[in-house]
């Protein structure tokens, strides 16, 4: 068993106004208007994923897909329930979020790599490979604030895709950059998935899900609608979407 999720529930407490200062808090407290609306982003979600499976997660906007990925990567702790994982997790949730725009590309490789949990030795070994893959060449020594958005995505993808993780968590990042780089990054993704890696993939591209995934988890309004075979569930899901 690679991933075991048991009765995950995530509740957000939404105050009727977003209270962000002590004054507002005290005023609300005095007026007894401090009510909270509970919003359940995930409700009682349970599943088990075996080693090497590629799982697609589908659902309309606000179904709780990203919340589920955050819970599994450990970013968000579920209100109740638990997740057990075996092995290292690499979340590719939003590329380049750890970049410091005042630092050069080279410095950012080390900073971002450290944030992703790579060791110093590993990064030094892979440094040339990262630079080569990102196709940045001499731009690697100028501050990232001068990069184009495509360059930033290329660098971020090159860093994130260096390690072959036990569990890979992907949120719609299968293709970045221009057509040539999209092809290259797609190939890299395939390579990462082919090493017996367990993959959790969120995608709105149903064709992609059909092509890549062994099984599918279908979420709607925070609840699991169904877990099952790709073709079957994709068909059913598409039907609800077309209506």
């Amino acid at each position: 068993m690679m991933i075991k999720a048991e009765n995950i529930t995530v509740c957000y407490r939404m105050a009727n106004d977003k209270i962000q200062s002590i004054k507002e808090y005290l005023v609300a407290l005095l007026k007894r208007k401090l009510k909270y609306d509970e919003f359940r982003a995930l409700q009682d979600v349970s599943f088990e994923i075996e080693k090497g499976e590629v799982i697609g997660i589908v659902g309309s906007n606000g179904a709780g897909k990203s919340t589920l990925l955050k819970v599994i990567s450990g970013i968000l702790r579920p209100t109740t329930g638990s997740v057990t994982l075996e092995g290292n997790v690499v979340p590719m949730l939003e590329l380049g979020s750890g970049f410091d725009f005042d630092l050069s590309g080279r410095e950012n490789i080390f900073l971002n790599g450290a944030i992703l949990g790579y060791s110093e030795k590993f990064l030094k070994e892979k440094y040339d490979e990262i630079v080569e893959f990102s196709e940045l060449g001499e731009f690697i020594d100028i501050p990232v604030r001068n990069y184009s958005s495509g360059m930033i995505m290329r660098l971020a993808f090159s860093i994130a895709s260096q390690v072959v993780p036990d569990i890979l968590i992907v949120d719609e990042i299968l293709a970045v950059g221009d057509a040539a780089f999209q092809e290259k990054s797609y190939a890299r993704m395939m390579e990462l998935m082919s090493h017996g890696t367990t993959v959790l993939l969120v995608s709105h591209n149903i064709d992609q899900v059909r092509r890549l995934c062994d099984r599918v988890i279908w979420l709607d309004h925070g609840k699991v609608v169904a877990i099952g075979e790709t073709e079957e569930l994709c068909d059913a899901y598409m039907k609800t979407q077309q209506r």
Partner: peptide, 9 residues
């Protein structure tokens, strides 16, 4: 915030 939202550290 952007980091805390995206990576577990």
């Amino acid at each position: 915030a952007s980091l805390i939202n995206k990576v577990y550290v």
